[in-house]
Design a protein around this nucleic acid. Structure first.
Length: 478
RNA sequence: GCGGGUAUAGUUCAAUGGUAGAACACCAGUUUGUGGCACUGGUUAUCAGGGUCCGAUUCCCUGUACUCGCCCCA
C-alpha cells in the first residue's frame, strides 16, 4: 500500500484562507506594471464591511414570512408600493431629519461622487418618499395618498445585537390628511402586521410633541427648567441643553432621569389644536381596542416629527426593551422641502429586529417547498434523459432534486437520502435504452421498473398524498 | 463616539514558545447499478500587520471583526 500524498497541487485553496484571500507575497512584489509603478494588491477580506451581513438561506424562512405578511397587508389598507433609490442627495436628509440629530451628525453615510455630487445612503426611508411625493406631483392624487416601501437603510453606528449598519425597514407613509383617525389607522396596521407575524407581546408607546408653535413654547419652558437643575445633568445633556433640549427627556442616565421626572411634559403644554388631536387619537385607539401606553418622555430622534409620535417595543426575558419600529406625524415636512403644505404620518418597522424577535419566540416561519423526488442517473445517455425528464416534470410543477454532476449511484442516493425525499427515480444505461425508469421508494426501499411515460402520473399521485415524515438532518446552518 | 470580553477547520470546542487535535459536517471507499447504520481513508484552520525571540498560533503593541454594555435607534 503505497499511498503517495500528492503534494504538487499548488492548491489554490492554500492561498484562500477562510477570511482572507491574499495574493502570494512573491507575486505582490512582482506585480509592477502600469506606468512603471509598483502595484501592491490589497488583500481581499472575506467579509462584508462592518455592520453588514449576509442573510443565508436558512434564515430566509423568517424573512419570507415577513415579506409575505407585508405583501398581504399593505394593499388592504390602500397602500401602493413605491421603490426609491438607496442614494439621495445629502441635503435632502440633512434638511428633513435635521442637524443636531444623531442620525445626521454621526450616523449618515455621505460621499462625493465622481460627478462631484454630494450624496448619502438613506438612513431612513420617509425623506426619500417625501421627495418622490413632491417630484411626481402626488399632491393632486385623491387623498390620502398611502405609500409603502421596503428596503435597506444605512446608519454608521456601532453594531451590536439587532443593530446593523445595513438593515431593512418596511416603511408606511400617509400623505394629505391631518385627522388623527389616520394616525389610529396606521397604528392599527402596525398591530395587524405584528399580530400576523405572531408577535403579540408588544407594547405601543404614544406621545404628542405638538406643533412647531406649542413646541417652541414648551421647549423654552423645558430649557428654563433644566437650566435651573443644570448641575444635576450629565455631560451630554448639558450640551443638549443648547443643541437639542428635547432629547434630555430621553437620556437614560440615572441623574437625568430623576431630573426629567419632574420636568414639564409635552402633553401638558400642547396648544388647543394639538391637544384635541392627541385626545381624539386616544379615543380612536380605545375604539379599536388597541392597547397603548402614553409615554411623555418619548420624543424621537428626527426633527421633522410633529404631534403624534409612537414607538413599538418588545421586551425580552431579561426585561430589556427593544424597539421594533416607530413613527409619527410630520405635518410640515413636505412644505419644508418645497412642496404644497401636506400633513402626513408614517412609521417604519425594522425587519431584522422582527426576525430576531420571531426567532426568539419561535414564531411561525415560511419555508419554501422542498422537493420530494430525486432523480439519479448512471451513464451519459441516462444523464441526458434525466436532464430532459427533470425539465418535463418541472414544467408540470413537480419539484425535483438532483445531483447530476455526480457519477456514482451510491453518492447520489446518499444525497437523496439526506435531502429526505420520498421517491428516487433511477435511470441507468439499461433503462435509458428501454425507455423505462426505476422508481425507488426511499422509505420502504422497494423499487419497481415502469415505462417512462407513466412517470408523470405516478409522481403526481405521490405528491397528492401527505408528505411522509422523514427525519431530516440539519445541514449545518446553510 | 466611549468602555468590557473574545478571535484556532464549514460548525462547536481542544492544545502548545518548536507551525496544531477531536466531534459533527463535507468528499470518497468498504468487490465494481442502490441510501440510511457501521468501518476506513481524505480535504479543510491558528483574523491581519508589526515587535520580542534561534524560533510565536501561543508573549507584547497596533489594526480589524465579532460580542456585551453606554449613547442612539429599526
Amino acid at each position: 500500500m503505497s499511498k503517495k500524498p500528492i503534494k504538487n497541487k499548488v492548491s489554490s485553496k492554500r492561498n484562500v484562507s477562510k477570511k482572507i484571500v491574499k495574493p502570494l507575497k512573491k507575486s505582490v512584489k512582482k506585480v509592477s506594471v502600469k506606468a512603471g509603478k509598483k502595484i501592491v494588491q490589497e488583500p481581499i477580506v472575506m467579509q462584508p464591511p462592518r455592520g453588514m451581513r449576509d442573510i443565508l438561506p436558512n434564515e430566509q424562512e423568517y424573512w419570507n414570512r415577513v415579506r409575505m405578511v407585508l405583501d398581504k397587508e399593505y394593499p388592504k389598507y390602500g397602500f401602493g408600493r413605491i421603490d426609491i433609490p438607496v442614494l439621495e442627495y445629502s441635503n435632502l436628509f440633512i434638511r428633513s431629519i435635521g442637524k443636531g440629530t444623531d442620525l445626521i451628525d454621526k450616523e449618515i453615510y455621505t460621499f462625493v461622487t465622481k460627478g462631484k455630487d454630494k450624496v448619502a445612503l438613506r438612513p431612513e426611508i420617509t425623506a426619500g418618499v417625501a421627495r418622490a411625493f413632491i417630484q411626481h406631483g402626488m399632491n393632486v392624487l385623491p387623498k390620502p395618498v398611502k405609500l409603502f416601501s421596503i428596503g435597506p437603510v444605512y446608519r454608521y453606528d456601532r453594531p451590536q445585537e439587532g443593530r446593523y449598519r445595513e438593515h431593512f425597514q418596511a416603511n408606511f407613509d400617509i400623505f394629505g390628511e391631518e385627522d388623527s383617525v389616520l394616525d389610529a389607522q396606521l397604528i392599527q396596521l402596525a398591530y395587524r402586521i405584528l399580530g400576523a407575524l405572531g408577535l403579540k407581546n408588544v407594547q405601543f408607546q404614544v406621545n404628542s410633541i405638538g406643533c412647531p408653535d406649542c413646541r417652541k413654547e414648551y421647549i423654552d419652558m423645558l430649557v428654563s427648567y433644566f437650566e435651573s437643575k443644570k448641575k444635576k445633568l450629565c455631560k451630554t445633556c448639558k450640551a443638549r441643553l443648547k443643541t437639542n433640549p428635547l432629547r434630555i427627556l430621553d437620556c437614560k442616565e440615572d441623574k437625568c432621569v430623576q431630573v426629567s421626572a419632574n420636568a414639564p411634559q409635552t402633553v401638558d403644554h400642547l396648544c388647543n389644536g394639538c391637544r384635541d388631536h392627541f385626545k381624539s387619537l386616544l379615543e380612536y385607539l380605545d375604539e379599536l381596542e388597541l392597547p397603548y401606553a402614553i409615554n411623555p418622555q418619548l420624543v424621537r430622534g428626527l426633527d421633522y416629527y410633529t404631534r403624534t409620535v409612537f414607538e413599538i417595543w418588545s421586551t425580552d426575558e431579561e426585561g430589556k426593551k427593544k424597539s421594533l419600529g416607530g413613527g409619527g406625524r410630520y405635518d410640515k415636512l413636505i412644505e419644508s422641502l418645497g412642496g404644497e403644505p401636506t400633513p402626513a404620518i408614517g412609521f417604519a418597522l425594522g425587519i431584522d429586529r422582527l426576525v430576531l424577535e420571531m426567532k426568539r419566540i419561535k414564531a411561525k416561519s415560511y419555508e419554501n417547498p422542498k422537493p420530494r423526488i430525486f432523480i439519479a442517473q448512471l451513464g451519459n445517455l441516462a444523464k441526458k434523459k434525466s436532464l430532459k425528464l427533470f425539465s418535463d416534470l418541472e414544467r408540470d410543477g413537480i419539484l425535483i432534486a438532483e445531483s447530476f454532476g455526480r457519477g456514482s449511484l451510491k453518492s447520489q442516493l446518499r444525497t437523496a437520502n439526506r435531502l429526505g425525499v420520498e421517491m428516487t427515480i433511477i435511470i441507468g444505461q439499461k433503462e435509458a435504452l428501454d425507455e423505462t425508469v426505476i422508481m425507488k421508494n426511499m422509505i420502504t426501499g422497494t423499487q419497481e421498473t415502469v415505462p417512462q411515460e407513466k412517470v408523470l402520473n405516478a409522481m403526481k399521485k405521490i405528491l397528492k398524498s401527505k408528505p411522509m415524515i422523514i427525519k431530516k438532518k440539519k445541514i449545518n446552518n446553510i
